[in-house]
Amino acid sequence: MAAGGDHGSPDSYRSPLASRYASPEMCFVFSDRYKFRTWRQLWLWLAEAEQTLGLPITDEQIQEMKSNLENIDFKMAAEEEKRLRHDVMAHVHTFGHCCPKAAGIIHLGATSCYVGDNTDLIILRNALDLLLPKLARVISRLADFAKERASLPTLGFTHFQPAQLTTVGKRCCLWIQDLCMDLQNLKRVRDDLRFRGVKGTTGTQASFLQLFEGDDHKVEQLDKMVTEKAGFKRAFIITGQTYTRKVDIEVLSVLASLGASVHKICTDIRLLANLKEMEEPFEKQQIGSSAMPYKRNPMRSERCCSLARHLMTLVMDPLQTASVQWFERTLDDSANRRICLAEAFLTADTILNTLQNISEGLVVYPKVIERRIRQELPFMATENIIMAMVKAGGSRQDCHEKIRVLSQQAASVVKQEGGDNDLIERIQVDAYFSPIHSQLDHLLDPSSFTGRASQQVQRFLEEEVYPLLKPYESVMKVKAELCL
């Protein structure tokens, strides 16, 4: 049975990233139509530049190519590739079939990587351009969430054990800070992308030097003109047959890092959902379990974690691919890159769409948070109580021993009897502590235990987050809708 299948058929496997999760716009960027249309555009740009620099290419040939950029006979191309065992030459023939007058000058002087690699770089750039505003929107939604809850005390956790208090907004800023680093890295790697350009079979530009009869300047002009037509500021000066596969490492490393950030955020949300302090959106008709109707599973956060793990592992592909590119190139890269580049971007696209949807509907339960604080705060307040007693004339050592005994009794009630923490009640009825009984409410005010959390939130948002989001103001209103 021949390899390949009808990918629109229910009898043929289709990647869930495309069929179930990723956005239509990201799927289109990695589609065959987008790819092969870009090949034709690159052939047109090459012909236009070659004509401008004096090669015998007519206006009629150029116009014929322009008129057929979208006229792609995919069936013919597939048949040609089956016959020739070469995808680029299959599309040269297919393009030439609908451009008979231009057929002889299509791909003039070029090698397969002229269309293959340059198209990949265009796709990487455009895919990054799709991700950047999506990530900015996630940051914006979380920034709104953090600002609104900047002063809401909550129990902090280290080692997932109760620690000092923080605020809900401050905790959210930990998430935002990681995503801001990801946004900066995505922008950097996007701006650092260079075009492969017009380089020939081993990167020496020998074929173009021959076409222009040894004119170095025209060869350099050709490279520059096509690079500018493709919208790049610069091209690699040095290439082998391909652009260095280190570029793929750079791009997928940034995406993998984004995956790590999203995994951490969504894990926190899942843990908070278990504590009943916070939940992701839950639709009115949504079913959490087929057997347990009360369940409210954090399905979206779980999906993000599941896909983020996949995204983090994909960076190993370009690392290994770059390491086995012998001399000017081997074909070890080809099949692998067809999979890992598309999957990385479709996965990143999915987790950003999902995280935006989550961040637009996060639900906080202040009463649950308050109750958990009441359970733990008495123990945390013991040092403040000791200091207040010393100020009232008591002995630190005597007070410490009193607190120690009462704390152990209260802990026994919590752990052995399943009761509430009654340390404060014990202190309130103990005559030894009568000098500070009137101060206990103040000493137990949760806001006095959150330090500068709310001020940190305000400063972080104003100095770091809002300036970073400013270039994306025009796209901030787009909502994230999930079908599944």
Rank of each mutant, 00 (worst) to 15 (best):
Ile249Asn: 06
Glu277Lys: 04
Pro467Arg: 09
Val29Arg: 05
Val414Thr: 04
Thr202Asn: 08
Ser474Lys: 15
Phe74Arg: 11
Ala348Pro: 04
His159Phe: 03
Lys264Pro: 04
Thr239Leu: 08
Arg396Leu: 06
Thr58Lys: 14
Gly393Tyr: 08
Glu279Lys: 08
Gln41Gly: 05
Ile249Gly: 05
Thr242Asp: 06
Met278Glu: 05
His263Met: 08
Ser23Pro: 05
Gln286Leu: 02
Gly4Ala: 15
Gln408Ala: 14
Val92Gly: 09
Ala344Pro: 07
Arg300Gly: 04
Arg137Lys: 12
Val368Glu: 06
Val364Cys: 09
Met299Gly: 06
Arg14Ile: 15
Asp332Glu: 02
Tyr466Glu: 14
Leu314Val: 08
Thr119Asp: 02
Ile351Pro: 01
Gln286Ala: 02
Met292Asn: 08
Glu250Leu: 10
Gly116Gln: 12
Glu462Met: 13
Ser23Leu: 06
Arg338Tyr: 02
Leu108Lys: 01
Ser407Ala: 09
Pro56Leu: 13
Leu272Trp: 11
Gln177Met: 13
Thr119Phe: 08
Glu462Gln: 11
Val168Asn: 05
Asp422Lys: 08
Glu417Thr: 07
Ala47Pro: 02
Lys75Pro: 06
Asp59Met: 10
Asn421Asp: 03
Lys82Trp: 11
Phe232Glu: 01
Gly214Glu: 13
Pro378Glu: 02
Gln356Pro: 04
Lys402Ile: 08
Ser257Ala: 07
Ile176Glu: 04
Glu70Ile: 11
Lys470Phe: 14
Ser140Pro: 01
Cys98His: 12
Ser434Pro: 06
Gln41Tyr: 14
Phe460Cys: 05
Leu482Tyr: 06
Gln320Val: 10
Cys483Pro: 15
Thr58Arg: 13
Glu328Asp: 06
Ala411Ser: 06
Asn71Glu: 12
Cys180Asp: 10
Leu84Gly: 07
Ala110Trp: 02
Leu135Val: 14
Glu462Leu: 14
Ser9Ile: 15
Leu352Lys: 06
Arg234Met: 15
Asn297Ile: 04
Lys402Cys: 00
Tyr13Ala: 13
Arg171Val: 02
Leu362Met: 12
Glu328Pro: 01
Glu60Val: 12
Val324Ile: 09
Tyr13Val: 14
Thr267Trp: 07
Arg141Ala: 15
Glu401Ile: 07
Lys246Phe: 04
Asp422Ala: 06
Gln164Asn: 08
Ile105Glu: 05
Arg83Met: 10
Ala388Asp: 04
Glu228Ala: 12
Leu53His: 06
His310Ser: 09
Arg40Phe: 00
Cys266Asp: 01
Lys479Val: 10
Glu220Lys: 08
Cys98Tyr: 13
Lys284His: 14
Arg188Ala: 02
Ser67Thr: 12
Thr330Arg: 05
Gln286Glu: 03
Phe208Asp: 01
Gln221Asp: 13
Gln177Phe: 09
Val315Glu: 06
Ala127Arg: 00
Thr330Ser: 10
Gly104Phe: 08
His7Cys: 09
Trp39Cys: 07
Tyr34Arg: 06
Pro366Val: 01
Leu468Asp: 02
Gly394Glu: 13
Glu283Val: 05
